[in-house]
Design a protein around this nucleic acid. Structure first.
Lengths: 143, 143
DNA sequence: CCTTACCGTTGGGGCACCCAATGAATTAAC
DNA sequence: GTTAATTCATTGGGTGCCCCAACGGTAAGG
């Protein structure tokens, strides 16, 4: 039996956690050039995808707490990337939309995020990257 | 071009982050049965591995901030899993050692963590698990 | 000596995650 | 149709992990 720490560090959960942390940092640093945090970026992307959408819908799709969604959208709105308008059909809801500035930032972030991903996967050949994605996809979708 | 959110969620960093989050949760739930958090477990294991060791050494080996190490060791010491004794050779240092109780907890946590890892990897065959580990290891050690 | 560096501790802050409660507004039940 | 249950956005807590700065006490180098 290996020693306790070596045992932990040989577990897949530890290894995948380390790789995820590095990837997270790479992407975070990349999109920081556009002044966005990871979750802000994700919310901006989801807003662009689902057109005028209520905050609660965004929260459900991204598994973001309503409390945190308020702060994220406040930042995006202050940066002029997103608009909150009252929904005439349901006055409880805020209809969130992306501004042209937001779409431009989103386009630039897409390239930045891809570059960060390439850097993470740089040790792997294209075929190996595909293998890794296939295995991770099965872990993610199977349970 | 895919839509913005689909683009993000197709990136390896997103996928590995998701898998890591699930694995993290599984292990955290497992060792919570022993009253330990993930970092407390790691520090306890590192303490067992490196015998009497100074806090700063533990922090360097696990990349834990000295401030956080104080709290972690406070908890472990309050739980009777670890001892802090002044180092006679260097009175700045605390010689941290594991108690018999700590070793017992560590043994039980090892089994719990392995079970959690098996659950995470359950969709994969043994050979596929090996492939995944090999690919992740290269991503982790190469850069 | 005396400067330099380290040790543990305390103090900040930020980000991601989670839970509870509120008032306003909508929907469902009766 | 009035009432009860639900949903919405917001505010209020809290935790874990990460990073930086400062402090008194200690050790090592010049």
């Amino acid at each position: 039996m290996t020693s306790p720490l070596q045992h932990i560090q040989s577990l897949p959960t530890w290894l995948v956690g380390r790789v995820a942390a590095r990837g997270r940092g790479l992407v975070a640093d990349a999109i920081a050039a556009e002044g966005l945090k990871l979750m802000q970026h994700a919310v901006l992307a989801a807003t662009a995808e689902y057109g005028p959408v209520a905050q609660a819908d965004l929260g459900r799709r991204l598994a973001v707490d309503p409390k945190d969604m308020v702060g994220i959208l406040n930042h995006l709105q202050d940066a002029g990337l997103v608009l909150r308008a009252p929904d005439p059909a349901d006055r409880r809801k805020n209809a969130v939309t992306v501004t042209p500035d937001g779409e431009a930032v989103l386009r630039r972030c897409a390239a930045l995020a891809e570059a960060a991903n390439d850097e993470l996967l740089s040790p792997l050949a294209p075929q190996e990257r595909q293998q890794l994605m296939a295995l991770l996809t099965r872990l993610h979708e199977a349970p």
